[in-house]
Write a protein that binds this DNA or RNA. Structure first.
Lengths: 247, 247
DNA sequence: CCACTATATTGGTATATACCAAGAGAAATC
DNA sequence: GATTTCTCTTGGTATATACCAATATAGTGG
């Protein structure tokens, strides 16, 4: 009942102190991008709290997007957010090559499928039509940024897999198949990663990320490719310019 | 060492079972929107796991966006996602009134400030210029959906606070001040909620949400209002139509 | 009927402990 | 020099327990 001494003079829960400490270290540059944070056990000793409490704080930092962990290697400082203007280009890779983002693309899987009802609807084609599908991992300066899965109408791109998929497919489609992207229908939402996705993106399972779906259209407004990008949430920022219609 | 009997036959961690169970209940409609999920203690008994493990599962469901908790009341099923086309309208409230979304607006705070460097830059005005600022909570069918903070150039809207702010300000600005929105510069990102924001949105602290910033421009391309919406992440989906330029 | 008051329930925080499995790096081996 | 093996560190999972604070509900009194 007496106010006694001692520490505990701060407000709020104990893990708050750890958060504030690390947040300051990160924001004032004492810890650079991708630098290792102290381990759960080390933080516990340093702040005289249990490991689970230290963990609680670190998980909060992950949700803030300031840190990330990758399975049992440790926790690290998240890189800066990067901005992607969806109203100017439908191709991130072309956008990235203009800047010095250090983009690299790794093919994860490829194959052919028949259009499912959902995908057929997106592409305005009949069900069962043949599609190329391929999944690629996009990294910036060696660190995973997003996964992209694309579905392209097979007829339109004969022998597509004879070309390398570890480049901008927008450019491939334009230059090799004379099918330039003219516009795109985009939707953006937040969702949790599943196990496979977490693994690829080097994140814990059930972490939240940002999903960007786009249908890519030719000059006649005809869809020819459907893609789904799953971004590390703390990394992406999307901008657009909107014009009010119907007034 | 022996395979013995018994349960444990599923793969993966124990909390996985709880997740799958509840996910099924939700997706197959046995639990309606905003229905209460079993408590941490109840789940622990039901699945014969400790409360902390049950909690672990429930937190994962929250990150997935399938459930939400509000401080010590319990956990509930998240409502369906709703879609907001940012390339057609800059005003969500007008969009919402057209549908039957059950939109209600509550004024949280209001005041006047001088433009900070950041906001001045967004609005292309000099620092220190007077701004109206107000924060409002937008709810759909009685459940909080997003917080909006707006900054409007005071000169342009004399006596603005004599009007109710619990309506569409876009419409207010258009009809009362002859200042229709013509276009908007939008940016979207994911970030964690702070304490105050969590409280308003009825979510646990450090939960991730989606922030949508927009600068609203008049027909000459002159900014007159800057706004920041913070959405419950599981709720929002943003769509846009993009046209490729510079080719 | 309304205001107050106990009481039970619930999630939030915190600790101490244990074991496991994936990585990283050093040491031993080929 | 390259491969394999061992060891250490790290985060991931799990339990049992404890107390707290906000909430909801049932009961009580004016």
């Amino acid at each position: 009942m007496n106010e006694d001494s001692n520490n505990q003079r701060a407000k709020g829960p104990a893990f708050q102190k750890v958060i504030e400490f690390l947040r300051a270290q990160i924001q004032f540059g004492k810890l650079q991008e991708h630098a290792a944070l102290p381990s759960e056990r080390a933080l516990g000793e340093q702040f005289n709290i249990s490991r689970m409490t230290a963990r609680r704080a670190l998980l909060a930092l992950e949700m803030e997007g300031l840190a990330y962990s990758s399975d049992r290697r440790g926790r690290f400082v998240s890189p800066q957010r990067l901005t992607y203007d969806i109203s100017k280009t439908v191709s991130f890779s072309e956008h990235a090559e203009e800047g010095a983002l250090g983009l690299s693309i790794k093919l994860v899987s490829q194959g052919m499928i028949e259009a499912t009802p959902q995908i057929a609807a997106k592409l305005s084609i009949e069900e069962g039509r043949e599609l190329y599908t391929y999944t690629r991992l996009f990294s910036l300066k060696g660190h995973p940024a997003f996964i992209e899965e694309e579905f392209a109408i097979a007829d339109l791109f004969p022998d597509m897999f004879s070309h390398s998929l570890e480049q901008s497919t927008t450019r491939l489609m334009e230059q090799e198949y004379n099918m330039p992207a003219h516009s795109g229908d985009i939707s953006i939402r937040m969702r949790a990663l599943n196990e496979a996705e977490s693994k690829l993106l080097n994140l814990p399972t059930y972490h939240a990320g940002i999903e960007l779906e786009q249908v890519i259209l030719d000059h006649r407004g005809q869809p020819f490719c459907f893609g789904r990008q799953l971004w590390r949430g703390e990394l992406a920022e999307f901008t657009a310019h909107a014009v009010v219609r119907n007034r």
